[in-house]
Amino acid sequence: MTAAAQVFNCANHAPLPVHDRAGNDYCYNCVIENFQAPAFGLARRMLNDWAMAEDAVQESFVSGYRAFSQFRGQNIKAWIMRIVANHCRDILRSRRARPTVSLDPLPSGPDDVTPSAAEIPSAQESPEDHAERQELRRAIEAGLAALPAEQKMALVLVDVQGFSYDEVALIMDCSLGTVKSRVSRGRGSMRDYLRATGELLPSQFRQDK
């Protein structure tokens, strides 16, 4: 393996060598291990469905494996996320064309999900503050789910996952100006949504009358 692949380590899985267009070697399982969390986070928020998000991520990684020889070796994280984003778009498009109604109660997620750090109350936080923070989190998730797909994708990538604007332009396959515009409009819609449901939120989100 060359230097490109040495940033990964194959301690937890069998190595799966792949080559990019320039001839650099990678272990594809290491790529998956590194990026499966943000990939799943994007797919879950885009599709609002846990099982579909899992399928989408799995299929995206398979597509990435098959197309890895086309990767030009620039930004592998953005490349993988772009495949996931495109796959989510395809699913949303086919869902719009053939709408289905889930019989499962919403939200569809596993029951045994380990609470994340954001959900565990800290020692310095009062129960009221913790409840308020949880309420805000739920309101933001609901506001994200209500956004148009492209604005949602831009907002999730920039504000939730911390990608730079340039990376998001690569992932979404659009110009930097378009990303800025989508992020601005998404934030505006989000702020309006939080103001509209602001009674239970922290004081700064309540509309001054």
Binding site: L16, V113, R137, M190
Partner: peptide
């Protein structure tokens, strides 16, 4: 405040490993 709350949204690990056997 809104951006800060969004950055603290849970972005936890994937529900399962997607590595290929």
């Amino acid at each position: 405040a809104m951006l800060s709350a969004m950055r603290r949204l849970p972005n936890g690990p994937a529900p399962r490993s997607f590595v290929f056997a």
